[in-house]
Amino acid sequence: MDTKLLEYTLRLGDNALILGQRLVEWCGHGPVLEQDIALSNIALDQLGQARMLLQYAAEQKGEGFTEDKLAFFRPEEEFKNALILELPNEDWGFTLARQFYFDTYNYFLYSELLKSSDENIKAIAQKAIKEISYHAQWSAEWIIRLGDGTEESHHRIQKSIDDLWEWTGELFTKDEIDLFAENDNIGPNLDVIKENWHEKVSQILEIATLKKPEAEWMQSGGKQGSHTEYLGFILAEMQSLPRMYPEANW
């Protein structure tokens, strides 16, 4: 087993899972039926990607591991998702701002994963990129609408864009796992993703009449397993049944 490849797979899978888990909280509570349905579609895509990636991770871990064992029986510190994805949903604007930052990142990331030297990751990326392209377009359109909508929406979405900013840096900070992926052509050079991301984000924010945040301090730690206080509660809820009845099949 290649522990670094496993680690890289888990990061991708946990990003999809934790974001999917946050998005399902919206189901039944969206601002209008059409958008309730739209966000559930995105949640379904994220959870579908999470399953493929966690199945691949389970395969790497070998005997006795399954997607569910990874999702429901790992403790906090073994989850490797980016911190931005575990933040609470707050209001619809905050959720969409997070979606915009993350979808844009995911779009450039998965466009590169299409060329992955790892056949499994490549195959997953081929399926996922179609979904992610749609998400990125959808969330960017919403940022423009809210930024250039009413005075209230302009202020509210600007605040979300600002508040989320410090959680974006982690997506582009390389550690040994990212370097391993880059060197083995499994994943991209994050510097390139960062450059593309900044260009796209600047462009959309400008159309949206919003100001791009300038703060330099960035949070980090999620992809190494060092989380905010929020993840514990996400897992407590998500894992409750399987942990209460570990011998049961559902």
Binding site: Q35, I37, N41
Partner: peptide, 20 residues
């Protein structure tokens, strides 16, 4: 039918609502 503020979102909503 469905509700949408403009044609771009009408198309997207139609995709999400009627082509699941």
């Amino acid at each position: 039918s469905l509700h949408a503020p403009d044609e771009e979102m009408a198309i997207k909503n139609a995709r999400d609502v009627y082509t699941r």
